[in-house]
Write a protein that binds this DNA or RNA. Structure first.
Lengths: 182, 182
DNA sequence: ACCTGAACACCGTTCAAGT
DNA sequence: ACCTGAACACCGTTCAAGT
């Protein structure tokens, strides 16, 4: 007796599923996400979720996109370069396991690959704008990429917040300071 | 009718299992590794492997330790700093998915956590020795950590070998060149 | 000590059947 | 269009039973 929900708005149903998936990802990471778990939370059969998100990775990418918007979508409007970088690193640190899972799934899932590409491009654009006033134009591309790579590396190993920010400051002052030499 | 292999040396049997696991990891990464797949390759019941490696992660850590020794155990004896760094980055790049899987599993598996710690310490020690002649003593720790972090970041995103080495050279010359300023 | 086979509780995906 | 339930081929782990 499939209790159909034709009355409920389609977007509302999809939003319900995404919200449940976000909760599971935040609580237990990629392994905790499953069609079954989402369905159980919503009182549905586990194959009902498949109707909207055919594969686990489609569901994963949709939910993680929501998380990125919620956690990284509204950066602080004021503060200097280091303060803004600190904010981003702290946010990215908390999301590191999910971002790492995205990277791994991107090899097999088009949806994951698409989200990863968009995520990377967004980060790069924002960082370049942040650094532009402080770096010589001919060095901007390389400095931007270097900082991006460094931040990605910072997130790999668990470190204390203090260590992370110290290292970041060490690198950035070195790169920004060195810009006067060219 | 369990065909017992009391005649075979215990270490030889374990080596067989580790070799099969190494092959599976190299071919398909962490997801491709399973007790079943190893057992099938060796003509055993899948629970036979459990006798030697109780959990999947125990098996994973043992096999990855072998891979690390095989791929990173014998660095080139000659060459300058950049050449040695290039060699390491190229090797680490190929192992990146497995190293990331190790990092993820280290959160749940003591064996994985132990291997990751040993791996990190080995890398750090070797890099410090490599950089020591070129960096002022009071900067050595921070420069070493910075390069480690940067290299870890380099491995996260897929880049061409050329891009990777260019970025590495940009960072290292900047850091080594900056050592004269202190 | 070593290995088997059965069992348990999952998983992702597919699909015929219903409303 | 939407949802169910059954099915398939897995998975990691546990365990009684055999040699």
């Amino acid at each position: 007796m499939p209790r159909n929900r034709h009355d409920v708005d389609r977007d509302a149903k999809i939003a319900e599923i995404r919200e449940a998936a976000v909760g599971l990802l935040r609580a237990g990471g990629y392994p905790a996400l499953s069609h079954s778990a989402v369905a159980k939370e919503l009182g549905l059969a586990r194959t009902a979720v498949t109707w909207y998100f055919a594969t686990k990775d489609d569901l994963f990418a949709a939910a993680l996109a929501d998380i990125y918007v919620a956690d990284l979508g509204t950066p602080p409007a004021d503060g200097d370069v280091m303060a803004r970088l600190r904010w981003a690193v702290e946010r990215l640190t908390a999301l590191q396991p999910l971002t790492h899972a995205l990277h791994e799934r991107a090899r097999h899932s088009p949806a994951a690959a698409e989200l990863e590409a968009a995520f990377q491009e967004g980060l790069c654009t924002r960082l370049r704008a942040l650094l532009a006033p402080h770096v010589a134009a001919d060095r901007l591309d390389r400095v931007t990429t270097t900082v991006i790579v460094f931040v990605e590396g910072l997130l790999v190993q668990p470190r204390t917040t203090g260590d992370r920010l110290d290292l970041l400051e060490f690198l950035v002052t070195d790169l920004i300071g060195a810009s006067g030499r060219s």
